[in-house]
Nucleic acid binder design. Structure first.
Lengths: 256, 256
DNA sequence: AAGGTTGTTTCGTTTATTGAAACTTTGTTC
DNA sequence: GAACAAAGTTTCAATAAACGAAACAACCTT
């Protein structure tokens, strides 16, 4: 019976966000105040909170104009229909697996884990253990590292166990060493897992950059060292990067 | 010097939204409480507010699971890069214009107006006055009506002038008559403008339904009555609807 | 330097948020 | 079907944030 009559504070935040998103060009504070019908000081405070939270971003020199921020993009990308996304991921993995005759997989950043969402194994050859739905060791898997390299400290803390368990003798077990490796990923644009999970198994992975939302997915290839080492790294990485940007286009045809 | 240390209420709203968006399956209240580290009653209230605002949506029978809501999708679509969207719109218009040899255009819902974002005129023949950037009379243009038919009352109030100016003798000038016309649009799936803006000029338009976000765009054809009447309505409407869903796919390949 | 515009701070009042505790509902087990 | 557990909901007093009028500062114009 008693409907919500009072406007929640959250409601006004959203109204401001909508006006900013909907406006034809970037909008200033006064214009937002007019469009929303809210008093200027109120809008000022709302905008500041929205910017602090990452929902909006200021892009003018003197705090004059605002656009949709990373945080919001992130939520939207993460909220996408899982089956559809997995479908796209599968297509990309299949093509890549066919090209290299090795197991390819795509991985997604979750709340407290990194998880495979698609996998394609070549018909012949070993079935490797990256199954869709499987969690990957964040400090060892190349696919996980490709994502972690682009997350903030807080996210890293949430994802990385302490201490980092040694899965093989090659596993990176110190946080400092891992940070160095992640810095290398950012420099080169790809991550390697060289016998860090299993002896004789290695993997390459590239981050998938989504416009506005940073890195939430990665695309990887894995296989026995003996076979993978025969493929020139540049060739493999180039194919991964191409697959990554293809997937980003599938999702992000939409984004700025 | 004094950074924001206290977490804003908005920050917690966003954290809940993120957890819901990021979680692999749909999440319940208790799980959200665990993942965010917030007390259960707090999460309960936050979720309710988020659902009331349309940021999240409950999809379980008994309020058990949540997904990203319409309101958020809407912001995403509205915040899209304008040039890219206009590019897609242009492609669709060009193809349609070529098919019917009449002027085709796409129109977008703004904060207080309906505006053309793309237009394609056939090489030969009249140049009609729908130019990109032009505002359209919301109570007369078929393209505007195709959008208005799917907006809530508040949005209608914001967009429609009072009184509705008579542009020709055929213009609908009463709000009640307009509502009837809009109801017809919802039934048939297309809008007509029959000499309501100019004598001897008519137009057809179809709404573009975006997954989760409702109708924010429409696609239309316009031309002199003499020529347009010669094309079977069903054929024209079918082509418009196809173009509309093609555009929706371009933008919304991404949406649930 | 006067006049308009836009963005910012202050501050007392009002209102929402917060979370422990107690409670209700729903689902499971024996 | 009673007993138990788990998930969701309500209550409520202390606390914190939102609110917006007014007054202020910065920035363009002319």
């Amino acid at each position: 019976m008693s409907e919500r009559q009072k406007t929640l504070p959250l409601e006004r935040y959203m109204r401001v966000a909508e006006v900013v998103a909907a406006s034809h060009q970037s909008v200033g504070l006064t214009e937002i105040a007019v469009l929303t019908g809210l008093p200027k000081p109120t809008v000022h405070r709302l905008i500041n909170a929205l910017v602090d939270t990452g929902i909006l971003e200021a892009d003018g020199a003197h705090y004059k104009s605002f656009t949709v921020g990373r945080r919001l993009w992130r939520i939207l990308y993460l909220g996408l229909d899982r089956d559809k996304v997995a479908g796209y991921a599968q297509i990309v993995c299949d093509d890549l697996a066919k090209e290299f005759k090795e197991t390819c997989y795509m991985v997604r950043l979750g709340q407290r884990h990194v998880r495979a969402i698609a996998r394609s194994a070549p018909d012949q050859g070993h079935r490797l253990h990256v199954l869709p739905g499987a969690e990957l060791p964040p400090h060892a898997a190349s696919s996980a590292k490709a994502i972690l390299a682009y997350q903030d400290g807080e996210t890293l803390d949430r994802l990385l166990p302490d201490p980092l368990p040694a899965l093989t003798e090659h596993t990176i077990t110190s946080r400092a060493d891992l940070e160095v490796d992640l810095a290398r990923v950012r420099e080169t644009g790809y991550a390697i897992c060289d016998r860090e999970i299993d002896d004789n198994v290695m993997a390459y992975a590239c981050p998938i950059h989504l416009a506005g939302a940073g890195v939430l997915y990665s695309l990887g290839v894995t296989g026995p060292c003996s076979r993978l080492r025969q493929i020139p790294t540049e060739e493999l990485v180039a194919a991964l990067k191409q697959g990554a940007s293809r997937f980003a286009d599938m999702l992000g045809a939409v984004a700025g």
